[in-house]
């Protein structure tokens, strides 16, 4: 298990009678940037949400940085999520879980909520503004009034504010114009990782081809070693 930041074994998850993930084995090494690609409805989001304990039911082992965070969940949805975030997992949910009544600045501060990150939040904020200069201009604007692309930037920026070892970015291109989604993805690719890891879930393969260390296909709740149906076996 050493050397692996995240190690998932036999993870199944679903919502009620629907089983979405089937015995997934999956691991992420430190310093790795990888992509999970696959069609809508094949379990990419559920995989992320299962790591954050936000699905209906789940079973199987998830070891993050030497700590077991998986197992069968008996508590309600989302009860353990803050604890997992504090361990160092930052997730950008699909379709932006944003706070419409907060300004961009406050929003980013929320991302740096852990005590250690809170102290140097100004520094981190500047870092995010370097990545997304557009946000700097709209620092005091309410997030609810931003455009879709700006919101996505805020959402991603919020994850980057955290003191995380693992970033889970769900569908950075969803619902965005191609040019803007390309910019968001490029920004994600440009972020220096130095020891941290990033997993991007994306359905548009072309956006990420050749830019990440590893690309894993996801199909019907199973992970396929590599993507593209031409070199399947």
């Amino acid at each position: 298990m050493s050397g692996k930041l995240l190690n998932i074994q036999g993870l199944s998850a679903g919502y009620g009678p629907l089983r979405v993930l089937h015995e997934i084995d999956f691991s992420v090494a430190a310093g790795e940037r990888l992509a999970i690609v696959g069609l809508n409805g094949h379990g990419k989001t559920t995989l992320f949400r299962a790591i954050m304990h936000l699905v209906g039911w789940q079973q199987g082992s998830i070891v993050f940085d030497g700590t077991e965070i998986g197992g069968t969940r008996s508590l309600g949805e989302g009860r353990r999520t803050p604890g997992i975030v504090r361990l160092g997992v930052a997730m950008t949910p699909q379709g932006d879980a944003i706070f419409p009544g907060l300004t961009v600045k406050q929003h980013l501060d929320c991302g740096a909520y852990t005590k250690a990150a809170w102290r140097d939040r100004a520094l981190r904020r500047d870092h995010v503004y370097d990545i997304f200069p557009q946000l700097k201009e709209r620092e005091q604007a309410y997030v609810g009034k931003l455009s879709g692309g700006e919101r996505r930037m805020v959402s991603v920026g919020r994850a980057l504010m955290a003191d995380a070892k693992l970033y889970l970015i769900d569908e950075p291109s969803l619902g965005l114009a191609p040019r803007i989604s390309q910019r968001v993805v490029d920004a994600l690719i440009d972020i220096g990782l130095d020891g941290r890891a990033m997993v991007i879930a994306e359905q548009n393969v072309a956006l990420l081809t050749g830019k990440v260390d590893r690309m894993i296909g996801m199909h019907a709740g199973h992970l396929r070693g590599d993507v593209g149906h031409v070199d399947l076996l």
């Binding site: 679903g14 009620g16 009678p17 089983r19 089937h22 039911w57």
Partner: peptide, 14 residues
């Protein structure tokens, strides 16, 4: 019913 369907779903193969 919820528990039952969850248990069943966890056991079924696709």
């Amino acid at each position: 019913n919820r528990k039952k369907s969850e248990r069943r779903a966890a056991r079924t193969e696709k």
